[in-house]
Design a protein around this nucleic acid. Sequence first.
DNA 1: GTAAACTGCGAACAGCGTTAACTTCGCATA
DNA 2: TATGCGAAGTTAACGCTGTTCGCAGTTTAC
Lengths: 240, 240
Amino acid sequence: METRRDRVRAATVREISETARRILVEQGPEAATLRAIAREMGMTAPALYRYFGSHGELLRHLVGDLFTELTGELHTALKQVPQDDMSGKFLTVSRQFRAWSLAHPREYALLFGAPVRGAAEQEQIDFAEDCAREFGWTFMALFLELWRRGPFRIPSDDEIDPVLRDQLRRYRDGVLGIELPLGVIQQFLKCWIRLQGSVSLEVFGHLAFALDDAAPMFELMLAEISTDLDLTYTPPPHNT
Amino acid sequence: METRRDRVRAATVREISETARRILVEQGPEAATLRAIAREMGMTAPALYRYFGSHGELLRHLVGDLFTELTGELHTALKQVPQDDMSGKFLTVSRQFRAWSLAHPREYALLFGAPVRGAAEQEQIDFAEDCAREFGWTFMALFLELWRRGPFRIPSDDEIDPVLRDQLRRYRDGVLGIELPLGVIQQFLKCWIRLQGSVSLEVFGHLAFALDDAAPMFELMLAEISTDLDLTYTPPPHNT
DNA sequence: GTAAACTGCGAACAGCGTTAACTTCGCATA
DNA sequence: TATGCGAAGTTAACGCTGTTCGCAGTTTAC
């Protein structure tokens, strides 16, 4: 049952997350220390240990929140696209993902940067991991819908590299649990790598050596992917 | 003139770099503290300030060294390809880049991770920046050679997005200073984004949700890019 | 031969994550 | 209503971090 204390506690957890995020955004990741977060809230650092087991756990919780926010924005944008406009859905989700990432570079770095802090930390129940999975599922689900409603050209199983074929099959049967040609998954991965790879490079500033606005290159890529998926590319609505 | 002290000093700088790298590789980035580096060398932390102005400067110097090593390996691999085998050169450099990155993930994170430490630090003479430029030039030079010796299909200036066209022109005239169709630069960026984007995702573990060996996907991408550039794709020599 | 420059050291400062012992308060039950 | 327990906060402390300062010892240069 939902007692009063539970509500207060949940509110505090939320405030900690928000404070941590504000410091992260305004002063950078190295400024988001336990003491700084506590100070901002009129508390002391050890008090935070009543809510999180360690500094890392606090950050991982923030990661979960951020994934949830990002996923939510993608779904919100998706709802404003006509139900049967698959091209529009694909373009909208892709652009919204890039837009969020560029608008929140430090959050993006936290979500998609190098997992420097002991990557293989197997938490018993990892909140952040679940949120990340749900985020990924947003794209996967869209892709499945794309495939079901307007099949595009995919390689047959024979055309797929044997090593890759085994991995795709393991992923399909072990994780997804859906009946689906392996070529669809290969195509999904190809598109996703291009999408996220491109966004990562841009957000981390690795395209700044040549471009100060990578939007046109991103749109070019969307057009190419649209061709691959038998979709109709249309330029973004508010082209600046 | 090269005095004795200069040599000793240079040797110490080199030892510091090597020690820092060893700790970074063996124990992770957060273990590469000034005190740990000094301890490993039988020194104390303040002594390091005789060689580097700060911890960050030391790391940036290491970044320069790493870029140089990576660039060197690319050139070494390149020398073993017949002078006129442009397809081989492209495939070799791409595969060598991926191989180095996978073999040195922590170094890769330092070079190509999120530039978290005040990105816009304009050092007067940034050693690391120069090495990065030289690294980038390796790919650019190869691409120019590709273009000159076996022209591939490129978009005409009219076909390029106006916003992108201006940026490409500024990059060509302001940085490269070479006469070249803008379409070549666009094609170069497209390929580079796919290449590095793919490698980044793999090294940072962002493909592990589906693949435990991304090599086939990488080769698939190389094949596609080869087609774009009118090159002949051939599988890697030692396919495991 | 002497002065200056270079290279190291130890001590110290503020800040970090984290732990321990201790107080205070809210709530549930006898 | 009184009692007691657990949750939530405190201060003090430990060992770590980057960094600065003042002091030696050695090496180079004039």
